[in-house]
Design a protein around this nucleic acid. Structure first.
Lengths: 213, 213
DNA sequence: CCAATTTTCTAATTATCATTAGAAAATTAC
DNA sequence: GTAATTTTCTAATGATAATTAGAAAATTGG
């Protein structure tokens, strides 16, 4: 056997890729095995040599998706130089999250966007994995707050949910090549950390006035 | 005829409510007419007296959903006292958006969360309506920037997309009664306008340290 | 109350789709 | 090269679900 991967492994990956892509585009229920098979360049019946059911295929796609974004964000923190500021740590996490989602993202996008509409049993098994990922973000923000970089008078849970919403929703509008992920990261951090208000705006006393850049 | 609404109108509304609720929970493809009919306390065949197809029913739910949130945000601006600050205007828009989404929200939630997975033809017809709603938000933020309340060096399009993402994603996690919509509005505005960084955090020079509230 | 009309139900019909069984093709090991 | 094994294909099967036609029930106007 010359190749590292068996033929089976190659086909399996091809099927998973096709499934992730199709689930992400059409949702779970609207995706037929025929469609997945066509994208994977196969016949529908052949899928069953590799997976026992459509649900099993779905579950593996979801697992891969949540794992990838979890690992990416985790590594972004581990690879941080010792002296890095909390701001830099948060920026790295945001960037890792967005990059995983938008750049190599069928698995992760699928795992995020079709979650609400999958069979109950599979959803139940996904919840702990999503909770673990939430906990990672909670740690990142919590540490920043403890270090004095974030205000103490905010509800960090709500901040985290809103932040992840802004990040996750980007799969609905991001067009590759149109907006750079780096620019997105910068804007997220600007909003989250500094706000986009001007000094006058913060004081809340501005009046109507013309002022063009 | 004693009642104002004909029996037909009442049934029609009951069906639409049931459809909005079910579409929102299960997605478009996974929702069967049988299920909608059961929620509406009818038989599946009877739906056809009121709607010509599942798609027509879907389209009307989506139309109502996008209209409601559009109108709510628009009214929030029209009802603003003349001297209101830009901050207050933005807060009012955020609050209207969230309230429509989370409080009376099956139609609007459905229109937002299942959009990616509906039949192509219907999606095409929804796009201009969503664009019009986007434009409303663009005007609100653009006016605030022109008035000097928002920094001139931010990409307002990106800010808008991220902001709407944070708002829209809340349908995925908000539990009625658990988090108050008002608190959500406050946090959104705090993040968007002021940022949650401390002064030291903004300067980016903080060091690890214990500091509990 | 009665006839016309509106609304709902019941019982097909048809299409689609996940899944299966067994045959064919491809690959591997010798 | 050939037999064993792995992988894929073809052609059912059975279930589910959208849709329809015509019968029943409810409602309305007189």
């Amino acid at each position: 056997m010359a190749t590292e991967q068996s033929k089976s492994d190659i086909s399996r990956t091809r099927i998973l890729d096709a499934a992730a892509k199709t689930f992400r585009q059409k949702g779970y229920a609207a995706t037929t095995l025929n469609e997945i098979a066509k994208v994977a360049d196969m016949q529908a019946g052949s899928l069953y040599y590799h997976f026992n059911s459509k649900d099993e295929l779905l579950e593996e796609v979801l697992d891969i998706g949540i794992n990838r974004v979890h690992e990416a964000v985790e590594e972004s923190q581990e690879n941080m130089p010792a002296g890095a500021s909390q701001r830099e740590r948060i920026r790295a996490a945001v960037d890792a999250h967005l990059t995983t989602l938008l750049k190599h993202g069928d698995y992760t996008s699928a795992s995020i966007s079709i979650f609400a509409q999958i069979p109950e049993e599979i959803r139940q098994r996904q919840i702990p994995k999503r909770d673990a990922f939430s906990a990672l973000w909670r740690r990142i923000l919590g540490r920043a707050q403890k270090a004095g970089a974030l205000r103490n008078d905010v509800n960090l849970s709500m901040v985290r949910l809103l932040l992840l919403g802004a990040l996750n929703w980007s799969v609905e509008w991001h067009k590759p090549g149109k907006t750079s992920i780096h620019a997105m990261t910068e804007h997220v951090c600007l909003m989250l950390l500094d706000g986009i208000s001007t000094e006058e705006g913060i004081r809340g006393a501005e009046v109507e006035r013309e002022e063009v850049a």
